[in-house]
Amino acid sequence: MANVGYMRVSTTDQDMSLQRDALQEYDCVRIFSDKISGSRSERPGLTDCLAYLRPGDVLVVWRLDRLGRSLKDLIERVTKLEGKDVHLCSITEQIDTTKAGGKLVFHLFGAMAEFERNLISERTKAGLAAARKRGRKGGRPRKLTDDQVAAMRNLWQGKEHSLAEIGAMFGVSKWTVRKWVVGE
């Protein structure tokens, strides 16, 4: 079992000393880093860190927000770590999933996130049902009329035009033409 550190700052002019010092106090055998916004999904240092981790290792971060972009993202990441038998330790929040209390905290986070997703889904369904009762249809309005679709089919069956050319004639992408003409 080894402690492996990960640290991140959002901009290149920010200093990582505070995080590095904290991770070194946890005897991390290796420390990975990124100087990139947490909102970016592509983080090379984190990717390398996750690939480096082995079963039984502990991923140590200074704060949870260094690891995940959102609570949902963080829970998904921790779930993947658990699946690889890798633990998580967050220094600032004092969460350590090698201990029962740390696991409990993450299960509570997961339950809250699932509860929030279910509430959003219920509200969305209720809103759509209320709109349908008032006679409103959901979804984006069709860009093409039935006559335009028929004309596109005739052009395609004539085999003189490509999907892209037909799309250009009607102001839509070749993928839209494919959807209506070819049926894919």
Rank of each mutant, 00 (worst) to 15 (best):
T124P: 09
T124E: 11
T124C: 11
K125N: 13
K125R: 15
K125W: 12
A126N: 13
A126T: 15
A126R: 15
A126C: 06
G127W: 12
G127N: 04
L128P: 05
A129Q: 15
A129D: 14
A130D: 04
A130P: 03
A130T: 10
A130V: 09
A130F: 02
A131Q: 08
A131R: 10
R132T: 06
R132S: 08
R132C: 02
R132M: 05
K133Q: 13
K133T: 12
K133F: 05
K133P: 01
K133L: 15
R134G: 07
R134L: 15
R134Q: 15
R134H: 14
R134V: 09
R134N: 10
G135S: 05
R136P: 07
R136K: 15
R136Q: 15
K137F: 10
K137I: 13
K137V: 14
K137Y: 10
K137S: 01
K137E: 09
G138N: 02
G138M: 14
G138P: 00
G138W: 14
G138E: 04
G138H: 11
G138S: 11
G138T: 09
G138Q: 11
G139S: 05
G139V: 08
R140D: 03
R140I: 11
R140N: 05
R140Q: 05
P141R: 02
P141M: 00
P141H: 07
R142H: 12
R142V: 07
R142N: 12
K143R: 12
K143Q: 11
K143A: 01
K143V: 13
K143L: 12
L144V: 00
L144S: 04
T145P: 06
T145V: 01
T145M: 06
T145D: 00
T145Q: 01
D146H: 10
D146K: 15
D147L: 14
D147P: 04
D147E: 15
D147W: 07
Q148T: 04
Q148V: 04
Q148E: 13
V149P: 06
V149R: 04
V149G: 00
A150L: 12
A150Q: 13
A150T: 13
A150I: 06
A151E: 11
A151D: 09
A151V: 06
M152C: 01
M152Q: 04
M152P: 01
R153W: 08
R153H: 07
R153P: 04
N154E: 14
N154A: 13
N154C: 01
N154F: 03
N154S: 10
N154G: 00
N154P: 00
N154Y: 05
L155A: 01
L155W: 03
L155Y: 08
L155S: 03
W156C: 00
W156A: 09
W156Q: 02
W156D: 04
Q157H: 11
Q157C: 01
Q157W: 01
Q157M: 09
G158R: 11
G158N: 12
G158V: 02
K159I: 03
K159D: 09
K159M: 05
K159F: 02
E160P: 03
E160W: 01
E160S: 10
E160N: 11
E160V: 03
E160Q: 13
E160C: 05
